[in-house]
Write a protein that binds this DNA or RNA. Structure first.
Lengths: 146, 146
DNA sequence: GAGAATTGCGCAATCA
DNA sequence: GTGATTGCGCAATTCT
């Protein structure tokens, strides 16, 4: 943790930071010259026409709004992070489901294969019966249970 | 907990913008007090012991490092965003795959069902042959010798 | 039109 | 020491 402290020489204001955020603060000292949309754009002509009031960074209102926005930002980011995590979880979930399904397919395929073979065998037997000489089987413990 | 570094509106500060990034958007004008002592820390005892050098925000080196880091940050964030998007895509991909698999399972299941029914029918036919009285028996000229 | 939610961005601390 | 990450605040913008 590092701390850099801040302090304002401006009369009246001091460390703003209303609640204990426990988090660090960053500083973006801004002089509030009557000016240019301070935050707005600066490179370009930037007129300070935006709003008649320069919005003092010292103003209580300003700090209050900042604080609120900071909260909102934190909330939003948390939500975003949560969503991302959920998505990852969803991926794993789907992957599992996928494996499960593939396994099932494999099983069904095998079952089908067995049944088909039985059919073929049977067909052969029939043929044999009609025209002896084949290789018939004698046992027919057909098991179709599953 | 919080570190705040902030400059004051003390006379003699200079605003430095980094430069007009191509985008030329928001810039954080920085007041740069000439010195460590002055702007440095103030609230807490905060010693300026942090490294023998307070790191002038004016220093070319500082600006250079900042610039590099900003690049890195941008890059990292882009990458992160990309990854998130890929993950979303992966989800859709898996969902599709899943549907495909489910369809296949449905098909296989149906096939199996048909085959099993055939088997049952056949079994019945056999029974009928052994013990007449049944109703069906149209196609099974088999006279199994069992 | 106000307030909440998002989003892009820079700073600084920390990781690797 | 350097690039990569991450948390955080600011301000612009978008959504409600």
């Amino acid at each position: 943790m590092s701390k850099v402290a801040q302090q304002n020489s401006t009369p009246g204001i001091s460390v703003i930071h209303t609640q204990a955020h426990a988090s660090g603060l960053q500083q973006v000292p801004q002089l509030v010259p009557a000016g240019p949309g301070g935050g707005g754009k600066a490179a370009p002509p930037s007129k300070q026409s935006k709003k008649s009031s320069p919005m003092d960074r010292n103003s209580d209102e300003y700090r209050q709004r900042r604080e609120r926005n900071n909260m909102a930002v934190k909330k939003s980011r948390l939500k975003s992070k949560q969503k991302a995590q959920d998505t990852l979880q969803r991926v794993n979930q789907l992957k599992e489901e996928n494996e499960r399904l593939e396994a099932k397919i494999k099983l069904l395929t095998k079952e089908l294969s067995v049944l088909k073979d039985l059919f073929l065998e049977h067909a052969h037997n029939l043929a044999d019966n009609v025209q002896p000489g084949g290789t018939e089987n004698t046992t027919t413990p057909d098991n179709a249970g599953q």
